[in-house]
């Protein structure tokens, strides 16, 4: 199917601007990658350090959530415009996921 609904009225005009913007965004991606590595290192070091699990569990989950947010909003571009439906689908999925895990851990396999 070749239906075209043009979003760029005159691409030649803003070529330089777009190149610059893309390069800037790529730098942001590399920064978020460095952050993800950092978060991962903290998670592994915490386990190596052998803290009590009542302290380690919530921190590990928080670090995982932070890393996933970075992945979704930077690498998967959810911070861009036009991701309303994407957010709806993903968060609906996450809600069902949360309820499923809660149910399995408290009722189903108790």
């Amino acid at each position: 199917m070749a239906t075209q609904q043009s979003t760029s009225a005159n691409p030649k005009v803003n070529y330089e601007y777009r190149r610059k913007k893309a390069a800037e965004e790529m730098r942001k991606h590399v920064t978020s990658f460095a952050l993800m590595i950092f978060v991962t290192l903290i998670a592994f070091i915490m386990v190596l350090a052998g803290f009590d699990k009542t302290f380690v569990y919530p921190v590990l989950l928080a670090l995982a959530a932070l890393q996933v947010v970075l992945q979704l909003y930077y690498f998967m571009h959810m911070s861009h415009k036009g991701h309303g439906a994407a957010a709806l689908f993903l968060y609906s999925g996450a809600l069902v996921a949360f309820i499923t895990i809660l149910t399995f851990l408290t009722i189903v396999w108790w």
Binding site: A85, F89, L90, G93, A94, A97, T100, I101, F104
Partner: peptide, 22 residues
């Protein structure tokens, strides 16, 4: 594709839930 990813989230949730319970 994003709808599919929402579904994948639920699929993996059921697997995670089963793993955690067992």
């Amino acid at each position: 594709f994003w709808l599919f990813l929402g579904g994948e989230t639920v699929l993996f949730a059921s697997l995670f839930a089963t793993y955690l319970a067992l």
